[in-house]
Design a binder for these strands. Structure first.
Length: 419
RNA sequence: GUGAAUGUAGCUCAGUUGGUGGCAGCACUUGGUUGUGGUCCAGGCGGUCGUGGGUUCGAGUCCCAUCAUUCACCCCA
C-alpha cells in the first residue's frame, strides 16, 4: 500500500491514545475546578477572520495557512480567533459579563514538520473574556501550572509584559534606535527582523544577538503607569498562589494581538520546541473584531508536546481495559460462549473472546498478554454438567460456576469479578 | 521556504572491497503427550531492499532524479 498519511499529519494509535485520553480527562477536570465551560468550534472559518485576528503580516497568515482560495475559507491555525468570533456572534458578553471558556481540538499550519511540531496538531485552549483584573492573569498561569504539575511534568513558567497601545509605541521607537546603532553586529535574520518585527530581535537565539540585546531598552522600563500597576498586580497574585515563575524581559509573542501579560510554559526536553504552552492578554482584540469593548486573556497548550513529555518523563501506562476473557473449547462451547459474552457486555462488562478455535493454551497466553484478571473456561465436560470454570489469573485459583439462565450467570460473574 | 542526515520484515536494526537479502532481536503464530497464561525450548508466517532511471556480466551496496521521514533554521503550541 503506498497511500500514506500526509507529511506532518499523524495517526494516534491505540497505546498512545490512552495517554491523550488521560491528558484530556485531567484537563477537563482542572478546567472545571476553575469554572470554565467547554465550547466546541468549527475547524473552518472565513480566511478574513484569521487575517484580522492574528495579523496580516504574521508568518502564520502570510504563509502557513491551509486556505481554500476559491472559497475564501481557512482551516484554523489557532483557536482564539474562532472562539472570539463565536463569543461575539452569540452575544455571550450579554449573558455573563465574564466568560470562562475552553476548547480542545486540532489546528492546522503548513510549516515544515519537526520534533513536537506537526501540520495538524492539537491544542487545549482556555480563555477568559470580560475581565481586566490582574488576578485573572495570575489565575490562568496558576491553572496551567496546576495541570502540568498534576501530569507530573516539570516545566518552568516565564512571564513578561508587552505593554499596551499607550506605552508600546514609545518603546518601539527607542528599540528601533538602539537596533539601528548595532545593525552591523546582528545576524542576518535580525537585520531583517529589525524592520519587520523589531521585538523579535529580543529573543533571537543567536549568541551574538543575545549579547547585543543585553543592553537593549527593556519593555518593562517603558511600561505606562497602568501597565506597570497591572504587572505588579499579576506578580502579587502569582506569589499569593505560590506559582513559581521568572520574569523574562526578552520574551516576545508571535501573534500581533497580545497586550500586557504574556507567558510561556517552557521545557528543555523537546529539542527546539521549548514552549509546551503559551498565552497572554489581548485587551483590544475583541473590539477590533467587531465585538464589545472588553478585555481578554487566554493560553494554549500543545498536546503533542505534552504527550511527548509524558512519554519520555514516565514510561508505562496501565494496561488492559478488559475484565474477563471467555475461553471456548470446541464448537459447542464456543457457541455458548458467544451468547454469554454478549450477555456479559450487555451487563456492562468488558469481555474478550476470539472465534478462531484456538487451543486453550493459546487463549490463556492471550489472557496473560492482555493482563486480564479473570478467564472463564467453558470446557465441554463441565458444560454438559451445566458448569464452567472461573480462573483468577493473579492467584491462579479456580472455581466452578453454575450455568443457569444467562441473566443469573451474568449476575453471578459480575459479583464475583467486581468483588 | 532554507540546510543536513536517513530510507532493508509490523517495529528496532545487521548486510564487510558491488557477486543469490539475516537460523538477527522484538512482535505475531504453532507446538513442547489428553483441556490451563506470564519464563524457557523448538518450528512457522513475514521483504516490490522508498520509487524511477543510469553504470555494470551482475546493484541493498556506485551515480542521477524523485518521494518520504527525521533533526535544525525561519516561525510557533
Amino acid at each position: 500500500m503506498n497511500i500514506k498519511a500526509l507529511n506532518g499529519f499523524k495517526d494516534i494509535l491505540p497505546g498512545e491514545v490512552e495517554l491523550w485520553q488521560r491528558l484530556e480527562a485531567l484537563a477537563r477536570d482542572i478546567f472545571a475546578r476553575f469554572n470554565f465551560s467547554e465550547i466546541r468550534l468549527p475547524i473552518l472559518e472565513k480566511t478574513d477572520l484569521f487575517a484580522r485576528a492574528i495579523g496580516e503580516s504574521t508568518d502564520i497568515v502570510e504563509k502557513e495557512m491551509y486556505t481554500f482560495v476559491d472559497k475564501q475559507v481557512t482551516m484554523r491555525p489557532e483557536a482564539t480567533a474562532s472562539l472570539l468570533r463565536a463569543y461575539i456572534e452569540h452575544g455571550l458578553h450579554v449573558q455573563k459579563p465574564v466568560q470562562r471558556l475552553f476548547t480542545i481540538g486540532p489546528m492546522f499550519r503548513h510549516e515544515r514538520p519537526q520534533k513536537g511540531r506537526l501540520r495538524q496538531f492539537h491544542q487545549m485552549d482556555a480563555e477568559v473574556l470580560g475581565s481586566a483584573s490582574p488576578r485573572v492573569d495570575a489565575e490562568m498561569m496558576a491553572m496551567g501550572a496546576m495541570l502540568l504539575a498534576e501530569l507530573g511534568l516539570s516545566v518552568s513558567l516565564e512571564m513578561n509584559s508587552l505593554g499596551c497601545p499607550v506605552c508600546r509605541p514609545g518603546f518601539r521607537t527607542s528599540l528601533l534606535a538602539f537596533l539601528d546603532d548595532r545593525h552591523q553586529a546582528l545576524c542576518d535574520d535580525c537585520k531583517r527582523r529589525s524592520s519587520t518585527n523589531p521585538l523579535r530581535v529580543l529573543d533571537c537565539k543567536n549568541p551574538k544577538c543575545r549579547e547585543q540585546v543585553l543592553e537593549a531598552p527593556s519593555l518593562l522600563e517603558h511600561l505606562c503607569a497602568d501597565c506597570a500597576d497591572h504587572l505588579s498586580g499579576v506578580q502579587e497574585g502569582l506569589e499569593q498562589l505560590g506559582v513559581q515563575y521568572s520574569l523574562n524581559k526578552f520574551m516576545v509573542r508571535g501573534l500581533d494581538y497580545y497586550t500586557r501579560t504574556t507567558f510561556e510554559f517552557i521545557t528543555g526536553d523537546l529539542g527546539a520546541q521549548a514552549a509546551v504552552g503559551a498565552g497572554g492578554r489581548y485587551d483590544g482584540l475583541i473590539e477590533q473584531l467587531g465585538g464589545p469593548r472588553v478585555p481578554g486573556i487566554g493560553f494554549a497548550l500543545g498536546m503533542e508536546r505534552l504527550v511527548l513529555l509524558l512519554q519520555q518523563q514516565e514510561a508505562e501506562l496501565a494496561a488492559s481495559g478488559v475484565d474477563l476473557l471467555v475461553a471456548g473449547l470446541g464448537e459447542q462451547s464456543s457457541r455458548y460462549g458467544f451468547g454469554l459474552t454478549h450477555a456479559l457486555r450487555t451487563g456492562g462488562m468488558r469481555v474478550v473472546m476470539d472465534f478462531e478455535g484456538r487451543s486453550l493454551k493459546s487463549q490463556m497466553k492471550q489472557a496473560g498478554k492482555l493482563g486480564v484478571p479473570y478467564v472463564l473456561i467453558l470446557g465441554e465436560n463441565e458444560l454438559v454438567k451445566g458448569k464452567a470454570v472461573l480462573r483468577n489469573m493473579a492467584t491462579q485459583e479456580q472455581q466452578d460456576i453454575l450455568l443457569q439462565d444467562e441473566a443469573t450467570t451474568v449476575q453471578t460473574l459480575v459479583t464475583l469479578i467486581s468483588a
